[in-house]
């Protein structure tokens, strides 16, 4: 789902960068309120965790493997605003230091993976889990549903961003200047791939990690951070 440089026009990158500025500002304010100076390392280590989740390869039926993005899991564990900063940090490090995902597309990538993904996932999780006990199965189901909804909607956003490019930016003879496929191709390609395959990897990882954390350290689900 990482959008590299060159897939989106400079104007699209600018718009998403501008959209993300108030979100990052709000996230910083929310995090300052809820996390003290003491918890800056907590945020940094949360960001490193969201980076490291992608190193864990998950076996899927058929003998292949995939990896989760983990945005919803981090949101459930440290809250959506802190997750927004944590995932942004992970994306910045990936783009700037490892050339994975674009520098100019950082606004769009953060919108999809650091805003839409954790917020949608977190609120679906909250909606389904309501006030259920910390160790209940309902929270595991809620985490899985949140992960599925979060990644599917993030994929839809990425599909729309790709699909708008040939409509908005093309030469007079119809030559596409950026991502070449319109909404009719880009949206199904992104959404179906995530609904049918990648979304399920996200569901499995998020739900199982929540299940094990309930057993190991249920404090994460006892009304505090989550």
């Amino acid at each position: 789902m990482h959008i590299p440089d060159g897939y989106l026009s400079p104007a699209t990158c600018g718009v998403f960068g501008a959209v993300m500025i108030p979100i990052w500002t709000a996230a910083s304010k929310a995090v300052r309120k809820t996390l003290s100076v003491r918890q800056v390392p907590y945020l940094a280590i949360g960001a490193a965790f969201s980076f490291v989740i992608m190193m864990f390869n998950v076996p899927i039926p058929g003998g292949s493997t995939g990896h989760a993005v983990g945005g919803v899991l981090v949101a459930i564990l440290i809250g959506p605003w802190a997750a927004c900063i944590a995932v942004t940090v992970a994306l910045v490090i990936q783009a700037l230091l490892f050339g994975d995902g674009g520098i100019t597309a950082i606004g769009a990538n953060c919108f999809n993976m650091a805003f839409v993904l954790p917020f949608v996932g977190y609120y679906v999780y909250k909606l389904i889990s309501l006030n259920s006990p910390a160790g209940s199965n309902r929270r595991i189901i809620a985490a899985g549903a949140g992960a599925y909804a979060g990644i599917s909607l993030a994929a839809l956003c990425a599909g729309i961003e790709f699909g708008l490019q040939p409509l908005l930016y093309h030469k007079a003879n119809g030559q596409a200047l950026y991502s070449p496929y319109g909404l009719n191709v880009a949206v199904p390609a992104m959404v179906l791939g995530h609904l049918l395959v990648f979304g399920w990897v996200e569901v499995i990882v998020t739900a199982l990690v929540v299940k094990y954390l309930q057993k190991q350290n249920s404090v994460f689900f006892e009304g505090g951070r989550s």
């Binding site: 990052w24 910083s28 995090v31 300052r32 800056v40 390392p41 945020l43 940094a44 280590i45 960001a47 490193a48 980076f51 490291v52 900063i85 944590a86 942004t88 940090v89 992970a90 910045v92 490090i93 230091l97």
Partner: peptide, 13 residues
């Protein structure tokens, strides 16, 4: 806050 988080995160990676 952001730069501090990025720098610390990078070390822990």
């Amino acid at each position: 806050l952001f730069v501090l988080t990025v720098s610390m995160c990078f070390r822990y990676l």
